[in-house]
Every structure is written in structure tokens, then in C-alpha cells.
Design a protein around this nucleic acid. Structure first.
Lengths: 134, 134
DNA sequence: ATTATTAACTTGTTATTTGCAAGTTATTAG
DNA sequence: CTAATAACTTGCAAATAACAAGTTAATAAT
């Protein structure tokens, strides 16, 4: 794995947070679950940004170990697993929202997708409560 | 450099944000400037978490290219440069605050430093305005 | 009942990035 | 004039990531 499990023990809450969920792929997986309702390994493999299979496996394992994600069998299909956010994972909602809003403010590209940005601007609290409800 | 400059063009604001500032070292450098008043290359080299010199140079270059940091000569010492946050960089304040708060909520380690957490809890708006004032 | 397909990974290999030690250049301090 | 310092850069080994292919168990199709 990477750097995250070394836990440099600086005691800083920022470093702690980053060690727990702060890398590109972890946050994109969290986005998929939190915002796009994706739940399975194959859902994540289809992420637009294209994650490698071994890296995805590594990140899922790490996020589960950190208590951000939970993994359960799919009751309707014994070869599937369903990944979901734990309470601790849903508590990332406000960070995710701020990341989206910042992106919305500074992304000038024509292909920028504004859907989530607009939704949050319209009713931020509702958006957040919705995530936290699980 | 890494991955960040590939800009996978997914159009997603989360991916955009992560490509701009979303890796461990970038965020730790931003923490140093935003919260600890550090401004120089040698300040950053002394980060508790221990960043490699070549990686630091890479991240500073990237953050400057992305318009998060500005680099100016130190008027009092011609061999120094002073790095500072741009408006766009200071606009990361709310993300940083949420990251700190999340860390504060979930870091159970005895050595966890609560200073910033407590300050933000006491007066979040003041804390944020202070950062945004530059 | 076989065979094909799917889901979730794992493995092997190559490419990229990181970490670490040392070196460079332009100041500034003694 | 010599030693330090600031900000990098370079070289190289080690760790990670990307890419392609393979494995195993379970479901779907014939």
C-alpha cells in the first residue's frame, strides 16, 4: 500500500484526515458511493477517470480498514459485495460538499459538470442531510 | 510530475479539485501557509511529516501553476522566496476547516493536537475570515 | 448438465513516482 | 575571503501505479 498506513504520527488532524481518506482514488470512490449511488467493485471499475483494478482493491481494503466503508454480501447475488459508507464515511459529507463547491467556483472548462454544484447551491443543508441519512 | 497534470477531463468538479490540490503533500504545504504562517522553501522542508526536497519542489511548482500559490522574492534577502496563498488558494479555507474538524471528530490518538480544532469550534467564522483576509 | 459469462479479485510486468543523499548556484554572514 | 545558508537539482534505489491477463466462485444460457 502507500504512505497512508505509515501514519507519520505528527498528531495533526489534517495529516490524520489525509492518511485516512486523502488520496485521489479514495476520494473518487467515496464520491461514487456518496453522490452517484454506486456500490460494487464493478461499479467502481467503471469510474470515468479509469482506476486500475489492483489499485481499486487496495483502496477499498484501506477504506474499509479505516472504517470509512463497510462491505457486505449482496443478498440477491452471492458473487457480489455491496460497499457502503459507514457513519464515519458519511461524516465526510461536508468535506465533499466544500470540494465540489470549490471546484464549481474555479473550474472554467466548458465541459465542467455543474449538476451537483447547482443542487448544493440550491439547498445545501438538504443535500447534506440526504447524504447523512445514508 | 504526477497524475495531476493529466487532467482526465471527466468534467467532474471533485476530480477537478483533486487534480488541482488533492494530494497529501500539496495539502500539507497549504496547511503550513494557511495555518502555521510558514512561507519559505526551508520552512516547508521542516514539515513534521518530512517531505523530500524534490517532491516539495514539484508540488510548489504545481500549486503555483494552478494559481493556488504565488512566489515572490523576499525583499530583505535576495536568496529567499516567499510563497503565499492567492485568493484562489485562500478560498480553500472552508475545505481545510472541514478536514480539520473531521480529523478532530475521529482522531482518537492520545497525541492528537486539538489546538486548531478547538479554535475553529470556538469561532469558526472568525477563523475562516482570518484566513480569507490573507 | 454443460458451457458461457459475470463479479471480484490477484498476479506479473513495466512505467512512474517517491525517498534519500549529495551536489549546485547565488547570496549573505563572519 | 571563507564559511554558511536558501533554494533547488541530480542520481539512484525502492515503492507505487498502470496495464494486461489470469483465477475462483457463482449465476445465466443452451
Amino acid at each position: 500500500m502507500r504512505n497512508q498506513n505509515k501514519m507519520r504520527q505528527s498528531g495533526c488532524p489534517v495529516a490524520f484526515s489525509l492518511d485516512t481518506f486523502g488520496d485521489r482514488w479514495s476520494l473518487l470512490v467515496i464520491r461514487e458511493i456518496m453522490l452517484l449511488g454506486k456500490t460494487t467493485y464493478s461499479d467502481f471499475q467503471n469510474i470515468d477517470e479509469g482506476i486500475a483494478s489492483n489499485v481499486l482493491a487496495d483502496r477499498l481494503k484501506h477504506l474499509e480498514a479505516e472504517g470509512i466503508l463497510a462491505k457486505h454480501r449482496d443478498p440477491d447475488n452471492r458473487r457480489s459485495y455491496i460497499y457502503s459508507l459507514t457513519e464515519k464515511g458519511r461524516d465526510l459529507a461536508s468535506i465533499m460538499i466544500e470540494i465540489i463547491l470549490w471546484g464549481g467556483r474555479h473550474d472554467q472548462r466548458p465541459q465542467a459538470i455543474r449538476r451537483a454544484v447547482d443542487e448544493i447551491k440550491k439547498d445545501r443543508d438538504g443535500f447534506e442531510e440526504n447524504i447523512r441519512a445514508g
